[in-house]
């Protein structure tokens, strides 16, 4: 039985309008998109601009979203494409800093625990930056966003075995990158 709630939210339904739904969608998922873009290599100073691009695309492609599926992989797919364009353009402009800007983003003295968390976050992001785009997508979705592999395969349009394979390779690459940074003995 289709619940009324699902029917009302279905993009193809004539009663749905993105203007009405966009606000709660934005509120609920803006932090996720922001953090995802950061994990995909977007610099702190560019997060607002790139998030803007993502949500423009979300608005325009709203009809493509199937609400019976998890929204995270769908948003991730859009964020990944926008971030990829961003990185390509940034590379052309030769403006890609060597590291992300965790240190610069907060110059206040940090309590020990917060400092330790920041350091771990930097290790993760630097390691993620070394991964191949396709592997990184599967790795971030599964290991950080905790999306099931089957859902990831479906969302990315790849065979399930390919998703597993990418995840295994991504784990190995990530592990090696962390070791290179001295973050893991």
């Amino acid at each position: 039985m289709i619940l009324v709630t699902e029917l009302v939210l279905h993009p193809q339904s004539s009663v749905v309008d993105p203007q009405v739904q966009f606000r709660p969608l934005f509120d609920a998922h803006f932090p996720y998109v922001w953090r995802t873009l950061r994990r995909l290599g977007v610099q702190e100073r560019d997060l607002a601009d790139v998030s803007h691009e993502v949500f423009i695309t979300v608005f325009r492609r709203w009809d493509d979203y199937d609400p019976l599926r998890s929204i995270k992989p769908w948003l991730f797919g859009i964020a990944q494409r926008v971030a990829s364009d961003y990185r390509r353009l940034a590379r052309h402009r030769r403006e890609v800093p060597a590291n992300n800007e965790i240190e610069q983003a907060d110059v206040q003295p940090l309590p020990d625990e917060r400092l330790a968390i920041r350091e771990r976050q930097k290790v993760v992001r630097d390691a993620l930056a070394t991964l191949d785009d396709d592997r990184r997508a599967v790795f971030v979705l599964h290991e950080i966003d905790e999306v099931a592999i089957s859902e990831i395969a479906e969302a990315l349009g790849i065979p399930l075995n390919t998703a597993y394979s990418r995840l295994r390779l991504a784990r190995a690459d990530f592990r090696a990158a962390v070791v290179r940074q001295g973050g893991k003995r």
Binding site: P31, A48, F55, R120, Q121
Partner: peptide
């Protein structure tokens, strides 16, 4: 590795100002 990823999972969220700015721009 799990601990490292746990730290990233609680990464800073954008501020209200960020949200307002991006929403207005959209």
């Amino acid at each position: 590795l799990r601990e490292l990823l746990d730290a990233e999972r609680i990464a800073d969220a954008p501020t209200e100002t960020d949200a307002r700015r991006v929403f207005a721009a959209v």
